[in-house]
Each structure stands twice: as C-alpha cells, then as structure tokens.
Design a protein around this nucleic acid. Structure first.
Lengths: 309, 309
DNA sequence: ATTTTCGATATGTTTTATATATGACCTATG
DNA sequence: CATAGGTCATATATAAAACATATCGAAAAT
C-alpha cells in the first residue's frame, strides 16, 4: 500500500464517482480504476460497490475512509512540523544564565521578542554558575547561556558580546560618599574602605576585574567578606560591613539602607553581558535564538548611542 | 511523498546506518540512499547528517520520525480495522424486537453468544411493533428484527423461522379449570369464557391466530377486553375480567392470582419466533448476526427434540 | 430502440524504483 | 605515512509499475 492508493481512494470515496475523481486527481479513469482495484486486492476487501451510476462505499470502505483521511492529515502535519523544525520555528531550547543577568533589561526583552516571533519554540531557563553553564553547553544539556565573564576559547564554544554596563558603588546610607549628590565616584576614593564582594568561585570574572581595577588605581582592596549571592552582598553592605561594586542593572535591587553611586568606571571594569553557545550549532531553533538575541542587543545599543555607528 | 519513503526513512533512522537498513529492508544500498535523498529534496529539509560511520538524525529528522512511526502504525490499524469490518468482526448493528420476544430464552442466548464470538460489534436493541420493525428494516434504520408474525413477502425482506412455542391458558386463580392439575386444556373448553387479548394493532399475528383457532374449534371467542401490553393483559386476567392465551415463555411473568395451564395447541396457534432481515444484505456484521441467530436457534431445537432430525 | 453514462479491460508508453558497478571520503591500523 | 576497510554518493542499466489511449460491456435515460 502506498499513499497514492490512499489519496486515490479518498478522492473516489468523496466523489462517489471514479471518472470525476480521476479528473480531480489529474489522471485518466482507467489507471484510477486499476489502483482502486489493486488496493482492494491487497486488503482482500471490497471497498466500493459498483453501481450503474457511480460507486458507493461498503461498510468496510467507510471504515477505511475514516482512517485514510486521518492518515493523509497526519502526513501533512508531519511535513509542516518537520519544515518548521528545520526553519527553527518549532522545537525546544534550554537557555542558561548567571544570577546577575536577569536584572539587566536586555534579558526580559530578548525573551519577549522570541516568544512573539517564535511562539512554537518552548524555552527552558536554567540558572547556574559560569562553569556549570560552560559544561552544559559542551554536554549539549544547555543550548545557549548568558554569562558575564568571557570564556576561554578552544573548547568549541563561541562568545558573543551583547552589552556592557557601567559599575555602581553600593554604599551604606551613612557612608560619607552616600550623601554626595552629583558626579561619579573615583575608584581611588574607595581605597580606605572594606569591600564586600560576590564570591569568586561563583562569578570569577567580576571578582578579578574589581581586584585588577583597584590595583591599577594604585591600591589593594581590603576584602572584608564574600557573599554567595548578590542579594546577600547587598544586605551585608546595608549592615555596614563595607561597600561593594555592582553592575548598573543591580540598582534594581533596592535594599533598605543602601545608596548607589555611579563609579568612574575604567574600561577593564565595565561589566559585560555575553551570550555563549557552541561554535557549530545545527539546531535551527537555537541558531534563531542566538541571532535574535544578538540583534535585540544591537538595537538596544544603537538606541542608547545612536551616534556611535 | 509515498509510504515507501516513510518506511525507508524509519528503517534508516532506527538503524542509524543506510547499508544495514537496506539489508533489513531487502533492497540494495544505492536505491535507499536515493529515496532518502528524494524525501529530503521534497521536504526541502535535511533529515540526516551524514557521518563517517553512518548517519544521524537532525532535529528536523527527529520531528519527522515521531510522526512517521505513528503514520505507519495508523496505516496498519486502518488495514486491520477494514478487514475486520469486511469479515463482520467489527462494526455496529441495530436489532429490533417485539415486546413478547425477550421472555423467550432464545433471545438472551443469542446475544450472549454474539457478544462472546464478536466482541467488536456493538449492538443496539430497539423495541417496537411489527409494522415499525418492518419499516425500519426497509429504511435501513434496523438491521434485523425478532418478530412473532411472519411478514408478507415481496418487499425485499426475508423471514427465518427460529422457534415455535406451545400456548398456555392464563386463568384467574378461582377459575374452575385452574384447579385441574394434569393434562392439556382443550380449546373448546374455553368456549364459554370471556377473552382478554393483546391488542391487535400492536401484534396482529397472535390476535388473528387465536380468533382463527377458536373458529376452527367451533366457536367465536367473546373478547371482553384488549390490552396494550402483555403485563396489562395478565393483570386484567388476574382481576377476573376473563382468560387469555399466551405463548409459553410468557409464563415467566408470574402475576399474583393467575394460573397457567397448557393448551392443547392446534398447529395454527403455535406461537412462532422469526428473524426478519433484508433479503440482500451486504454488511458482514449483520450477516454474521443472522447466521449466528439461526444456528443458535437450530441448536436449541435439536436439544429439545434430538430425535427429530 | 438508441444514445449516454460509467466502470472494466487491453495494450502500448513513460516514469520510476531498483540493481550493478564504481567513486569519493573518512577512519582506523600496521 | 600508506594502506585497507567501511560508508555513503554517483552513474548507468534494467525491471517494474503507473499511466495514457482506445475499446468494450452493462445499465439507464431519453
């Protein structure tokens, strides 16, 4: 049995007339009669009663018709689903991110756009540390990941820069610098303060960048405390244990007793947001997600600095 | 696209290897490669990645595989369902009957056997008068009908005799004949009694047969009352309004105040049970039901009178 | 009775699926 | 590094089968 038999059968059943069905199918009547008969012979079942004025389905024919129509519909469904998957319009992707990324407006903007343009691709989000995300990309348990620190090359991964943020100083409300209203704080002004930092093992990029920047500014920071999450870092600052330096988007975390002040950010301390992915990616849905993310990021950058192009 | 493409695709996908899949399919490797490529060209989608040691499904190929397997299963289902319908092992039939028939043990026996041997055919039962059943058979709203009276020929229907019952006299308990314990009552002994009969319009066969038999016995029965159902007939007898003559199986209706006595039944009064159906019937499930009903009836007749064959 | 309609049959043609032979590419392995 | 083995792709030939044209036969409508 071939789909041809099923298509021909359905046409004849719906027309009740072999000659007319043949016209509709764009073939001649004799081959259609032959194919119908071949189908009946293979099934060893009479599907039509030949009447003087056309043909009529038998009971068995009616049973076959029900399935036949569903089969043809199913084939069409398979075709479109496959083509959609190939075009990346359908499927499933897993996107990883580090804890600080969701505070940046780029993050929700990307998923909003993606859902709008590609509603048939379901997305699973997974928060993890940078190391875990890189492993996930290599093991193919994660398809793309928003990370802060750039990743070493040569492991088959690619990293696309998406955005860069200025840094802000998080100060206890009673800190002398908290009152100063305008102008950026220079890094050297913090030489005498204790630092509360996000733990290095979880986010090595930011940690090292801060140390390096301080060194370049001529002092070694006094690290009073490391905290496991950004929120706990800020709580420790609020408690007066020290100051901290965080990416701009973290300002959204408004904690009682904390003041944020713009830092005169040296370029090596600018906090980047990158998208990491496999260098060769053959799943179209993932490629689509990556392309869209980069283009959303580019649009946002252009909006922020339209003169820089 | 043809089923061949789908069958070949599934084989290759499951083997992950074109050459091995070709062996399994009983064809050579080059045509299989060609057919797979033809499928990919038609869909305009790459289904496999060609690796040095076999082939691997792409994302789109995985999507197609899911549907492909279901389609093949669906085709097999269609084949078996159609063949079952053709053999009468599957489907639906509507069986009519007149109100007095279900009391006869043949009736439940038939449906019990039919359910056992043909569980995939669902049966709908419909009670109606003889006229309604005949119309139903002609309009094809009913497929077979258990009736008492034989139906006039020439309307495309056939009537198969299934069984014949002796008649019993239903007497009020205080009736003189009710006390007589053994021996059959002769019809003439009822010449002086009032008769309560099942209404003619509902069951003309039985009504006429009784009148005729009485006439042949030399008297015209005094019909005191007609009742719409057998139960009401018997209630009227119990109330002392007269006597009645009912088929043996009706004895199951044990009504307070009624005695049943065997009637010396003349042959023209024997109560038949017949199966009416269309003379030409092309639905196999119905033919099957008719055949089974007749054979069950024959078995029961042989059991009752094993010497008569 | 004649014509029309419609499916079946007969025969030739074209398409197409398959087989055989061979080539190209990658991977082990000595 | 070269060779052998394995795998898929390509080229050509062959066989099968789907299709077209022409015709027949039965039933129905005029």
């Amino acid at each position: 049995m071939e789909l041809r038999h099923i298509r021909y059968f359905v046409a004849v059943a719906e027309e009740g007339h072999i000659t007319r069905a043949a016209e509709k199918l764009g073939i001649q009547q004799p081959p259609l009669s032959q194919q119908i008969r071949a189908l009946e012979t293979e099934l060893d079942v009479q599907l039509f009663r030949r009447l003087p004025r056309g043909v009529a389905l038998t009971d068995a024919g009616r049973t076959f018709l029900e399935d036949a129509q569903k089969i043809l519909a199913h084939v069409e469904h398979a075709r479109t689903a496959t083509q959609r998957t190939a075009r990346g319009e359908q499927g499933h992707i897993v996107v990883g991110f580090t804890s600080s990324v969701p505070f940046h407006p780029l993050f929700p903007a990307v998923f909003r756009s993606f859902r709008e343009t590609t509603p048939l691709v379901s997305v699973r989000l997974e928060e993890s540390g940078t190391g875990g995300l890189v492993n996930g990309l290599i093991n193919e348990t994660i398809d793309a990941a928003f990370i802060r620190s750039p990743v070493a090359d040569g492991n088959g991964l690619a990293v696309h820069p998406l955005a860069e943020e200025a840094m802000f100083v998080a100060l206890p409300a009673e800190h002398p610098l908290a009152r100063k209203d305008k102008g950026a704080i220079d890094l050297q002004a913090l030489a005498g303060d204790s630092f509360v930092l996000y733990r290095r093992t979880v986010g090595p990029g930011l940690f090292d960048a801060i140390i390096t920047a301080c060194n370049n500014a001529g002092f070694t920071p006094d690290i009073a405390q490391e905290a496991p999450r950004f929120t706990s870092t800020l709580n420790l600052v609020a408690a007066g244990l020290g100051i901290s330096i965080v990416p701009e988007s973290l300002k959204r975390l408004q904690v009682e007793g904390i003041a944020y002040r713009l830092l005169e950010t040296p370029s090596e301390l600018k906090a980047p947001i990158n998208l990491a992915c496999r260098r060769i990616e053959n799943a179209a849905a993932i490629r689509r997600f990556i392309d869209m993310t980069r283009s959303v990021a580019r649009e946002r950058a252009d909006e922020a600095a339209p003169d820089s192009r």
